[in-house]
Nucleic acid binder design. Structure first.
Lengths: 338, 338
DNA sequence: TAGATTATACGAAACGTTTCGGATTGTCAA
DNA sequence: TTGACAATCCGAAACGTTTCGTATAATCTA
């Protein structure tokens, strides 16, 4: 490893001068700067960021904190797309990202503050924590620049990035209503996630705005799992034959509903319209193909990082960014009865 | 941020003693150790890893170097699963992973050595670099502990983790032969990837071992893209009606072949058997469902990290790990003619 | 020509650790 | 009583940076 000291020894200047030359200070002679730069180039010098961060407090590193990244989560490319977005912007900005995977239990061993100060992280992006997770509370209360994905909370050092879930869910519901559906069921995920709540609220508002009544009995819970959604909807569809449309809080659950419909010999979309959420790759390959609400997780990651760096540099005017979803209509939606 | 100095001030001991107490040295009195530990606990002290690494040269950090992690790569959950595997093991071992995304062009700005020494990385896992990428060469020649995913090269400080692609491809080919197929085509990916070569070799050997002749004309190129595979196989199947089976170097390309077959009104598997590679989620949802070779990327990541840490700690006896793939038979394979 | 100003360079301290080599007690065998 | 030894503690240097304050020499101003 070649250090400032090496460069100093070789060029004959002091460590101070070498440092200032490399950092572009103007109290160093053009000639000596050139000599120093040449030597640095030749020896492939790069500053040791750890040492740098020790004195400047700027580690050029942010954390991506995600809940429980284990075997099963590999299926979830929402997280991965967010990560790709972060990676792209972070690199552009000369930063680096470290991946922090945590679980509810691990949060007892180490506080959020500790995680951050261990590695001098300048800021953190949080995705997929449960509402009641201590880290989330710490992050919001603390003074570490933080950006939350899909959790709409903001303050001096906390911002968030999300999609217009509210509008897009309402839009989907109203679309179904416009097609003539009167009994629109809702397949919700588990209650740990903020998004479940938001989508459920929006579903109800969508119904109201379409002049339909909200019926609590038309809500199922599938925990964001295909199998659970399948079982829940199987029973549900049997006992609620008046239902002609299903809005699902995730595509995965929509697959479960689709499977149940097939099982019950219901024709999709003739007997039952289905709309999912996420636009996962699979939705284009099922038969019928699935209508869904498409998010842009890559964008969420990218813009989220942008926001985070603004908060870090104190140059941000706003504390939140909203990305537009799109309602993607495929074969699984139609007028009731065909 | 609470430092050793703070603890020293509060407990009345020296920084040295505090440090030694926390690190479990036995030349500190049980009582004083307890006092110090209590204080550390109370103030939520955690060592600053950057400062630590400056003196110990051990940063508790490894890098995951992946080629060009951009928008499109989000679809590729091979990489993501590997990443999840790395994350799991790395956390267990008290390390942290930083994500390094590079492109062929970026590799000109900064050398591999620089990337490593910038952040005192203890080791690096490399996935998806092109054969001719400079970083790959540097990594192999250099003295930084490195683990390559799916690139079988090893030396003093370099190891690799891969699956038994060779055997599993041969197995698939021989399985097709046993079913009675005599003209088995091969859809290859682009030539930048080591795996393309390996799979192609294994395809040929599989044919030979099954007593079939290798015919170079039965090889198509789909560049690991569905669309390209679709177009390539469309022409190919038209002009080679004797072909009754297609082995594809990836599931994505198998989808393309499947689409082409449907387009040509070929019945799969009656007129054409198809085997893919990767076992992506989609293969369970196509119709017919796709036979494929299943890799275990999570395992690759996890065991790869294990190997890397062994190399770092100089405690490893072997320099490579082979994970068993499995041949997964679904509906897309049958005897020729049904 | 004296004093002020500018250009250029550097010493030393600091960041938060670890670790080497002592220093200071107290205990015990001879 | 003395010397040896163990137990316990600490000072100072080091890791690779940045930065504050200062030093020196050259140049300018009046």
């Amino acid at each position: 490893m070649v250090t400032l000291k090496d460069l100093a020894r070789i060029t004959g200047y002091s460590v101070t001068t070498v440092s200032r030359a490399l950092n572009g200070y103007d109290d160093v002679n053009k000639e000596t700067r050139d000599i120093i730069l040449a030597a640095a180039e030749k020896l492939e010098y790069t500053p040791n960021i750890n040492a740098q961060s020790l004195v400047t407090k700027r580690s050029k590193t942010i954390g991506f904190l995600v809940s429980d990244l284990k075997r099963e989560s590999a299926k979830d490319n929402f997280t991965f797309e967010v990560l790709c977005g972060i990676s792209e912007f972070v690199t552009e900005a000369g930063y680096e990202m470290i991946l922090l995977s945590t679980s509810s239990s691990k949060q007892k061993n180490k506080t959020f503050r500790q995680i951050v100060s261990e590695r001098n992280l300048e800021g953190i992006i949080i995705q997929g924590l449960k509402k009641e997770d201590p880290y989330l509370q710490e992050a919001i209360k603390g003074s570490v620049p933080t950006v939350l994905v899909d959790i709409p909370i903001e303050n001096e050092t906390t911002g968030y990035v999300t999609s217009n879930q509210h509008d897009s869910v309402k839009k989907a519901i109203k679309y179904l209503a416009r097609l003539g559906h009167r009994n629109i069921a809702y397949m919700n995920g588990h209650k740990h996630a903020y998004v479940s709540e938001i989508r459920y609220q929006s579903y109800k508002e969508g119904l109201s705005e379409a002049g339909l009544e909200v019926d609590e009995n038309l809500v199922c819970y599938g925990d964001y799992e295909e199998e659970k959604a399948y079982r829940a909807s199987l029973d549900f569809l049997l006992s609620n034959p008046e239902v002609t449309a299903f809005f699902c809080a995730s595509d995965i659950m929509a697959l479960g509903v689709l499977k149940a419909a097939k099982e019950l010999k219901l024709d999709v979309p003739k007997d039952l319209s289905i709309i999912g959420f996420d636009n996962i790759l699979l939705t284009q390959y099922t038969s019928p193909t699935l209508s869904t609400i498409g998010q842009k997780p890559f964008e969420l990651g990218k813009r989220g990082t942008e926001l985070l760096l603004e908060i870090i540099q104190n140059s941000s005017t706003q504390r939140h960014i909203i990305i537009q979803n799109e309602l993607i209509l495929r074969e699984s939606t139609a007028q009731p009865g065909g």
